[in-house]
């Protein structure tokens, strides 16, 4: 099919096929966590007035990382990932208002809720593929949003849920009004999440998922069960997204209906593709780039922002299918040639 259309754009949510995995990339992978930590701490000293934004960026990066697990390593295209993020956020928020206040427990609650929603909906919808699956993921996020909207007594409905006041972290560090604790907490959770995600990607399970992404029937011929891999991956990613949602709730103190929306799902996809799907660093880079530009441009006019991101998306698809993270590869290849 594509052969007849010259210049067809094909986005493969995986790193480009390299004959040998470049040594520098493996080295880069090893250095990713120290680099992220250093950059995060440097930002802490450099931009003390933007800690609120940076906290949101760190939590969102974890959310996009979770989408990367699903799309980049499992090949599941979804426009409903916010279902898990939002469920995690609301679960943690409701728990904080009524039950517990320990921030770590709240993260666990969010992760559990996100994982459960993903497990149940994943088992229901992952038999589908392509457009049908896209539609089902949209339907799931819309239903979850509708349920949250209607459960006004618990969630605050369209007014949002507020009054989330976590107790001091480890009983020691209060969430101060400058957001210093919040930011460092979010950064630490992101780094731990990154390490765990990398561990999963390099595990036997991660290998099997990559196989399913490329050719599910071939995996079945090796004796594996593609659907079970996908549902498990979806559930695991749901835990990540749920933790990310809970992290947002804990650090910002409020949860809104937009955290379980179609557009928040689509934005995650945009951030991931911007950074480069199929590699974990890409998720973080994409989030930082997207949200920083958003912050700057939306302050002027939200529609300028839409124009910019729209053009940027089209440009990425047409000219840079590997995302920002692939720029380094290109530069290095260019120098070698």
């Amino acid at each position: 099919m594509s052969g007849r259309h010259t210049g067809a754009v094909v986005i493969d949510p995986s790193p480009p096929v390299a004959a040998h995995e470049p040594r520098f990339r493996r080295a880069l992978g090893g250095a990713a966590v120290p680099l992220l930590a250093a950059a995060g701490l440097a930002a802490f000293w450099l931009f003390p007035n933007d800690l609120g934004l940076m906290t949101r960026i760190a939590a969102t990066a974890l959310y996009v990382l979770s989408l990367d697990l699903v799309l980049g390593f499992g090949g599941i295209a979804t426009l409903g990932h916010a279902a898990m993020f939002g469920t995690g956020a609301y679960a943690a928020g409701i728990a904080a208002v009524h039950l517990v206040s320990d921030p770590l427990v709240l993260l666990a609650v969010g992760g559990l809720a996100g994982g459960l929603v993903a497990l149940v909906t994943g088992a229901l919808i992952l038999h589908a593929r392509g457009l049908t699956l896209l539609m089902l993921t949209i339907a799931v996020v819309q239903i979850v949003q509708e349920v949250v909207n209607k459960a006004r007594d618990l969630t605050g409905g369209s007014d949002g849920l507020s009054g989330i006041e976590p107790s001091p972290l480890f009983g020691l560090f209060r969430f101060d009004m400058f957001g210093r604790t919040s930011y460092l907490f979010a950064l630490a959770v992101l780094l731990v999440g990154f390490l765990v995600a990398r561990r999963i990607v390099r595990s036997p399970f991660g290998l099997a998922c990559r196989g399913v992404k490329e050719d599910p029937l071939r995996v079945a011929a090796l004796g594996g069960s593609p659907r079970r891999y996908l549902v498990t991956l979806y559930a695991v990613a749901g835990v990540f997204a749920g933790v990310a949602g809970a992290l947002t709730a804990v650090t910002s103190g409020i949860v809104g209906l937009d955290s379980v929306s179609f557009s928040w799902s689509a934005e995650a996809l945009v951030m991931l593709v911007l950074g480069g799907a199929g590699r974990l660093v890409g998720a973080v880079i994409g989030t930082v780039a997207f949200m920083t530009i958003h912050h700057v441009m939306a302050a002027i006019d939200p529609f300028h922002w839409m124009l910019f991101i729209g053009l940027f998306l089209m440009g990425t698809v047409l000219f840079l299918p590997g995302g920002i993270a692939s720029l380094a590869d290109r530069l290095i290849k260019g120098n070698r040639a």
Partner: peptide, 19 residues
């Protein structure tokens, strides 16, 4: 690696290292 791991049914090890 994938084929051997499938045969030994170790593919649901999420936190082990292939290597």
């Amino acid at each position: 690696e994938l084929a051997v791991l499938e045969r030994e049914r170790k593919t649901f090890r999420l936190f082990a290292s292939v290597r």
